[in-house]
Design a protein around this nucleic acid. Sequence first.
DNA 1: CTATGGCACGGATT
DNA 2: AATCCGTGCCATAG
Length: 474
Amino acid sequence: MAQRHVPYQGPSHRPMTTAHLAQTMTLLEMNNHELAEKIQRELDKNPALEMKEDYRCPTCGKRLINQVCPSCSIPPSMDQHSPIVFVSTRRTNSYSGSRSYTDDKDSFEDFSAEVEDLPFFVLNQIRTELEPDEQLIAASILTSLDDYGLCPTPSIELAVFHHVPLSKVEHVRSLIQKCDPLGVASESSQDALIIQAISLQERGDDIPPHTIEALEDGFDELSHKNHRALAKLIGITIKDAKKIIHFISENLNPFPAHAYWGTQWNQTDDKPFRYQDPDVIISYSKRDDEPQLMVEVLWPIYGNLKINPVFRKVISASEKDKSEKLNAEYQKANLLIKCLNQRNHTLVQLMQKLAKEQRDFILKGDKFMKPMTRASIAEDLNVHESTISRAVSSKSVQLPSGKIVPISQFFDRSLHIRTIIKEMIANETKPLSDTKITKKLKEKGFDIARRTVAKYRSMEAIPPTHLRKNKSKT
DNA sequence: CTATGGCACGGATT
DNA sequence: AATCCGTGCCATAG
């Protein structure tokens, strides 16, 4: 890749008119929700534009296979670390004007603030993965959540109610349980805990051996904190049993609704959580044993934007004064389409880079976040940094875990240190003071000031030393 | 006296 | 040019 250290953008580099540039910028800034509305508006007022509801690649026009464009997806190379990136027409729930926030913005907000947000939050995470009938089931499960985030209604009952096979209900439920407040909509606390433990294990966290067994078979003993009975039941030492109980009480949450969910949007503004559709979805498929990342840049509308084919003929057929006006509309339509392609291109490039650089973060979690700046990305991609800024702004991405986070989180400079601090405090025997944490971090090679540790701590809502209890560690 | 939180400054980032 | 973030200094609480 040719490196250009002086970012240069000008007419000679790419034949762009100023209008083209300006519009690309505006479009780039928008997230899919805004863009969908914008496109709808253009569609309404410009007869030269036409939306065709077939499934062709928005970028190159080729027919999509499995919602994936065969030629535009950046092909997987031998290198496992390069993710597949493509523009996807997968449906999200925000679609051109069908749910307009402008009309009933207030009522919608009131509604979501008043009703417990959790069901919405969860449903929106998985809506795109569900068939329409499954969505119904999901909705019904989620609306019957109790205050703890559990759904005590047995699956069979739901199956009967909806006249669907039991396996289907169970399938939907298991999908829901993997959503953000992990274990949500489980039938019981026990199930919720099991799900959480399994997913922690899958994520590669250290969990004491036999934890899952203990949860499955020795739940009574666990809840009474009866070390001895538990140890006997599973056939482990009392010490290990204590470890398990400690681990569970510190890391798992029998009441999913009480966990912090959606914190990444909450922490900045104190407004109640508001769900936002992702603009990008990252998932992975296991191939061999290395997961292959797949990045879908979502296309904001169902169909494809095209120039209305008859429009051209109408232009030449009409009289001069009228054709001027039509021609202008034609140009405008053309421009919009070009700019949209430009936007897609930039987004794909950006995500390609991000997914490659932050692979560990995406797969393994916050701890593996690599600090990076927008400027460095811009340099690598040979675009102006403001371009990256715009592309990143107000967009969100759904990670394989189902969490939806703003793309700007990929540029969080302190996230990895914060996670390490969190971990240190979680594992501390006796409360560590900020100074001690600072020292420990220095040993690990993180040179940050004591004051900064304090800041991070408060960001993570961890109480100061003297308020933290002594944790007896076996 | 030690540990923390508040305020504000300067440099980095956007 | 505007904003964000890390840090130092100081007051206050324990």
